[in-house]
Simulated scan of single mutants.
Amino acid sequence: MTAPDPKRIGAWPKLRPSNAGDIERIDRLLRQSYPRLLKPDYPPSVLVTAIPLIARAQPDLIKCGTYYVAEDRDGAIVGAGGWTQSIPGAGGREPGRGNIRHVVTDHSRVRQGIGRALMAHTLASARSEGMTWMHCVSTRTAVPFYASLGFTAMGEVSIPIGPAGIGFPAVEMRCDL
Results as ranks from 00 to 15, higher is better:
1 M>K: 06
1 M>Y: 09
2 T>S: 14
3 A>S: 14
4 P>M: 11
5 D>G: 10
6 P>R: 09
8 R>Y: 01
9 I>E: 09
10 G>L: 10
12 W>G: 02
13 P>H: 06
14 K>W: 08
14 K>G: 11
16 R>H: 07
18 S>E: 04
18 S>T: 12
20 A>Q: 13
22 D>M: 09
22 D>I: 08
23 I>Q: 06
23 I>K: 02
26 I>C: 09
26 I>K: 06
27 D>S: 07
28 R>H: 10
32 Q>P: 00
33 S>M: 07
33 S>G: 11
34 Y>H: 11
35 P>K: 05
38 L>E: 06
39 K>C: 07
40 P>M: 10
49 T>L: 14
51 I>C: 13
51 I>G: 12
52 P>T: 03
52 P>W: 01
53 L>D: 07
55 A>K: 01
56 R>V: 14
56 R>M: 10
57 A>S: 15
57 A>H: 04
58 Q>T: 11
60 D>Q: 14
62 I>C: 14
62 I>M: 09
62 I>G: 01
63 K>S: 15
63 K>N: 13
64 C>I: 10
64 C>F: 01
68 Y>V: 10
68 Y>M: 13
70 A>H: 02
70 A>W: 00
71 E>F: 03
72 D>C: 09
73 R>L: 11
77 I>V: 14
80 A>V: 01
82 G>M: 04
83 W>F: 12
85 Q>Y: 02
85 Q>E: 13
88 P>L: 08
89 G>T: 00
90 A>C: 06
92 G>I: 05
93 R>A: 13
94 E>P: 00
96 G>S: 07
97 R>G: 02
98 G>S: 15
99 N>F: 02
99 N>Y: 05
99 N>W: 06
100 I>Q: 01
107 H>P: 03
107 H>C: 15
109 R>E: 08
109 R>Q: 14
111 R>H: 12
113 G>Y: 08
113 G>C: 09
115 G>S: 07
116 R>N: 05
117 A>S: 15
117 A>L: 10
119 M>N: 08
119 M>G: 11
121 H>L: 11
123 L>K: 03
123 L>P: 01
125 S>G: 15
128 S>R: 13
130 G>P: 03
131 M>C: 15
133 W>H: 15
134 M>R: 09
134 M>I: 15
135 H>D: 13
138 S>L: 05
139 T>C: 08
140 R>T: 06
142 A>D: 00
142 A>S: 10
143 V>G: 08
144 P>W: 00
145 F>A: 14
145 F>G: 13
147 A>F: 01
147 A>S: 14
149 L>V: 07
151 F>Q: 08
152 T>G: 02
154 M>P: 00
155 G>F: 01
160 P>W: 02
162 G>W: 02
162 G>C: 05
166 I>S: 07
167 G>V: 04
169 P>T: 05
172 E>A: 15
172 E>W: 03
172 E>V: 07
175 C>G: 03
177 L>K: 04
